[in-house]
Design a protein around this nucleic acid. Sequence first.
DNA 1: TTATAATGTCAACACTGTTTACAAAAAAAT
DNA 2: ATTTTTTTGTAAACAGTGTTGACATTATAA
Lengths: 215, 215
Amino acid sequence: MSTRKDYHHGDLRDALLLAAEKQLSEEGPAGLSLRKLGRDLGVTPGAPYRHFEDKDALLAALATIGFQRLRATMLKEQKECVTGEERLRSGGIGYLKFAWKHPELFRLMFGWMPAREAPELHESGDAAFALLVDMLRQCEREGLLRQTALDAGLLAWSAVHGAAFLMIDGGLKLCGTEPDPEIVGDRVHRSLWSGIARHPVSVETGKESPASAPA
Amino acid sequence: MSTRKDYHHGDLRDALLLAAEKQLSEEGPAGLSLRKLGRDLGVTPGAPYRHFEDKDALLAALATIGFQRLRATMLKEQKECVTGEERLRSGGIGYLKFAWKHPELFRLMFGWMPAREAPELHESGDAAFALLVDMLRQCEREGLLRQTALDAGLLAWSAVHGAAFLMIDGGLKLCGTEPDPEIVGDRVHRSLWSGIARHPVSVETGKESPASAPA
DNA sequence: TTATAATGTCAACACTGTTTACAAAAAAAT
DNA sequence: ATTTTTTTGTAAACAGTGTTGACATTATAA
């Protein structure tokens, strides 16, 4: 939207965010310096402080953008899905695609979320989660779940979130899986959907459900 | 073990690690400064460099200790378990307990693992994962799994790892769950074990398995 | 045109990680 | 026991950082 491309620099705030994201993805969070950002943009060290109260504020803004993009990626991925299960599967793959494409940003989002208050950060984070709950509510409406949407949501989010971290941290090599979002997402979805136990078990009692007891 | 309590300071290396962990847990990774550590221990800024090549090296050592403790916590938690399923459940709860008790250290462990090479870091990390695989192999031997140990391991680790992050980042409030390791672990285990789909589905084909099709 | 607010410069402060040359103490070698 | 060597810590310095305050400049509004 960028309603102001005037003033001294033109649009420093956005330029800072853009450069910051680039620097973050190229050199990690340690190599992200406000002074360096200013230098690259041809501006003095004090200038960024007219747009961000703090270095943390800059990072919080970056994380906020990240959450919005995460949500957008999930939405785009599930654009043509109809079934709740399809949406869940595709949404998860979108989640993994985002983490795989922006690993440092992803880590920033979940490593700083609690530190800074930053209301807009929490809003965008909650919005991303609301999308997941939506997907599961649809599954619930379609009678696909054997538990509540929130119960299933806990496992679904945990699984996809954990898989994302394992992917970007290289932990998947230990599982004998290619770190490809489509492949991992598909595998996680299938296991998640059907459970890992050979004989289905009642969620409430923990006992085998009689319907599928072996011969 | 601490075979050397002599020299100038006594045992600076261990003292540094101890103080670093305290500082990390109290003020987060941003407030962790080598100079401040030295100051607190009554030692000059250059001293730590006799024990750690780098600040990153100090952090890597810290993370290594973290992995060893993580493994120990899981082992302790499943000490009296016999069934593979019980071990899996308790191991997961141990994982969550560790993350809940040392959130900053936990984040450090999985936010720096890939950055620094640090062979000992990878060793300790792999050792922790090997424990999980062990648990699933036992499940496999007992005929409890409907898929390979590695397949199940991917989901199991993802789920517990993700749940840990959600706990320490406050994401669980959105799931309507208390952030208690035992409760979360139990819920995740049950969903994980039995799947979230109402009608069990073949892992290979994705079609409903005939054994439990509804009337 | 003038007043005002927004934006950027400049110079400084306190702090950090890190290196270098040096001193002291402990361990090893004689 | 004395000398040599290695380990450990000190001292002083360098470059770089986040951050602040007083000032200049420019765009916006009156």
